[in-house]
Write a protein that binds this DNA or RNA. Sequence first.
DNA 1: TTTTTTATTGACTCGTCAATCAAGAAAAAC
DNA 2: GTTTTTCTTGATTGACGAGTCAATAAAAAA
Lengths: 194, 194
Amino acid sequence: MPKLGMEPIRRAALVEATIAEIGLQGTLDVTVSQIARRAGMSSALAHHYFGGKEQIFLAAMRHVLTVYGADVRAALSRATGPRARLEAVIRAGFGTSNFRPEVIAAWLNFYALARTSADAARLLRVYQRRLHSNLCHDLAPLAGDRAPAIAERLEGLIDGLYLRQGLRRGTPDGEAASAHVLFALELELRAVQS
Amino acid sequence: MPKLGMEPIRRAALVEATIAEIGLQGTLDVTVSQIARRAGMSSALAHHYFGGKEQIFLAAMRHVLTVYGADVRAALSRATGPRARLEAVIRAGFGTSNFRPEVIAAWLNFYALARTSADAARLLRVYQRRLHSNLCHDLAPLAGDRAPAIAERLEGLIDGLYLRQGLRRGTPDGEAASAHVLFALELELRAVQS
DNA sequence: TTTTTTATTGACTCGTCAATCAAGAAAAAC
DNA sequence: GTTTTTCTTGATTGACGAGTCAATAAAAAA
């Protein structure tokens, strides 16, 4: 019973299933068959639409990044002034849509994938550059030429806390994590003013 | 030409080869044959001494942790006073033996492994607890009951910067990384005193 | 109505890899 | 000098998984 216009639906289902399956298994060692079964289709169809396993992974990674980017943009549009914008960017990273256990697990594995796949590395760099430029842009009016160094520390802290949540079992605590980063931001800004 | 007392030599060679191979390939997707070949023996011998692939990985992880622990202990023995001890602990993590590219790559992959293997998770928790208790112990006289929260932030920053080095290509810069952490430590302590 | 396009799968191929095993060779023990 | 222990590997097994393909079926176009 083939209906037309299935392609986008199938692709979205596969991407979702990929993230879920990586989260469940905790590894990139998921088979195309597992992903396809969870998405309700045969593995042959998954190959048909994506061409291969790595491209499925990349699509999933791209999706995670897209959602994250949308969250950041939404949060930024609601904030006024550099300080509020900084807080918005930080909070968005630990917000509900990027901080679900499966997504964190997927992230962690994408980090590992980026060491193997040039495309994955490129995607990761897009995220890193965007975060860095967001932070620098709003740190500059508050910290002048010290902005880049402060941004590096905040980025490290964000990634580190994110990583640690990924290793913990159970519900991740985005509140605590972003509170830590916001506290570090406060200290950095206080230091600049003295 | 079998000589006696080979077991410890073979085991050490396999552990070294495992770290090197993971570093080279960037993945846990290394085969026992590759590891064994690099260590100069057949894959059957690797199985003979270790029993299975996962146990080879665990031995490699244990080795990395052991070296790290020895470095920290050595650095601590040279330091006097809480502040110097804190700096020693931080610097040791980014020191030459733990900060070689292969070791960083291995670490990164062990993080991923810890999501799958209970034994790997246990080993990782040993490292985390040791770091936490080291930091708290020397933060306490300087920061009182704020020590645990400060320690959490420093740990997050350490792990994050370590992770970021693992993704970068080329020679890792332990100096820059530890400078960032030491700066953060300075800010935290300054905040406590006011 | 015939043809083309899109959707879909079961069955198959081909490769890889962890793990096993039987067998050989050198030292040590007896 | 024979037996036992330690070391070692080539060959094999068995499982599993990525990717392909031919075939089916429905819709759309002709």
